[in-house]
């Protein structure tokens, strides 16, 4: 190859960037670093990727533990089943690829080779939801919560920022079966100052309030926090719950929101069918009680393409859009 050290060969303009120089932009992709730290203390952790080490920053792990890193090339299904084999021999493999490939293309491998035999494989599905923006429908994943929740024996978690990524990786490392980790695009702003004390199967309380509860996941948490700020200025106090765990699910958290606050709005960058909203609806319906309730997300359609932040605004997943839905739900 022509060069290995200079990341900007031949470039003169400070605005130019390439794969190497774009890595720091993905500041919330801390999983490579965190897993490398964890692997310092235990010898069973491995990290696998499918030609995306530079895109998902698993090269942070590769640099520190090259002997426990495997790049399978562009072969996601192979990677998933290879991980099953590694797990059967005692390793805890973390496999990483775009959520659209991890959860959709490899759904059958996850069910048959990971979940049913209870292999301790952790699937890192990054760039979930519509965070891939104009890279298009093939790269969007607005179905992965529905698919993974329906697979028996699979734990499903969804960090909302860097700190919660660290917390959830630590909290799930010894889960007896496989885990699906639904991740964003690596540019999620901080929700937590430091890794939160997470509790298995429980929402994380981000902000307390009594007028309404917003239960959000992933990129929706950023918007929900912003919306709560806007609504507070209008005298509406919102409880914001971060659904870090999608399975097992926080039934008690939903019931408490029903009894203690004036309604529930769910927010997700996922199809409202089969996603977080559906999970909350199941709890409300089976409780025998009732509350004001709306599912906010992608309404059973293929999203438009466009820059991610513009798309979130278009679909009302930004603070203003969420606040609008909250006001409508409260009839104010």
């Amino acid at each position: 190859m022509t060069e290995t050290t200079d990341p900007r060969p031949g470039l003169r303009d400070a605005r130019s960037w390439n794969m190497e120089t774009s890595l720091p932009l993905m500041y919330s992709f801390v999983h490579g670093e965190e897993l490398a730290d964890m692997a310092d203390d235990r010898d069973d952790i491995m990290v696998l990727t499918a030609d995306l080490a530079t895109s998902n920053r698993t090269n942070d792990f590769q640099h520190r533990h090259p002997d426990r890193f495997v790049d399978l090339g562009i072969a996601e299904q192979n990677m998933t089943s290879v991980a099953a084999g590694l797990a059967s021999a005692g390793f805890v493999p973390y496999i990483s690829t775009f959520a659209s490939f991890a959860a959709l293309m490899c759904a059958e491998q996850i069910r048959t080779d990971l979940a049913y035999p209870q292999m301790k494989v952790r699937v890192l599905g990054h760039h979930s939801g519509i965070s891939f923006g104009f890279y298009g429908t093939s790269h969007h994943a607005t179905e992965d919560i529905a698919i993974t929740r329906a697979i028996a024996g699979l734990t499903v978690v969804a960090p909302s920022d860097a700190a919660s990524t660290r917390a959830l990786l630590r909290a799930t490392v010894d889960e007896p079966g496989p885990v699906y980790v639904r991740m964003g695009r690596g540019r999620e702003k901080p929700i937590y100052d430091s890794p939160p004390e997470v509790s298995r199967g429980r929402f994380q309380l981000v902000r307390e309030g009594v007028d309404l509860t917003i239960i959000a996941t992933g990129i929706g948490v950023q918007g929900a926090v912003g919306a709560a700020g806007l609504l507070a200025a209008e005298g509406i106090e919102v409880r914001v719950l971060d659904a870090l765990w999608l399975k097992p699910f926080d039934v008690d958290g939903v019931l408490a929101a029903m009894s203690e606050t004036g309604g529930i709005l769910t927010v997700e960058d996922h199809n409202v069918m089969g996603g977080l909203g559906s999970a909350v609806a199941e709890v409300i319906a089976e409780s025998g009680g009732s509350t004001r309730f709306r599912r906010h997300g992608i309404q059973d359609e293929y999203a438009l393409i466009g820059p991610p932040t513009h798309l979130w605004r278009h679909y009302g997943l930004d603070p203003a859009g969420i606040a609008t839905r909250a006001r409508a739900l409260l009839g104010s």
Partner: peptide
Amino acid sequence: FMDLSLHWHLGYLGEVDRAD
């Protein structure tokens, strides 16, 4: 500067480099 470069699967050229 892109010919068989390890770094250019994805990227962006600023004005000066675009002109080049």
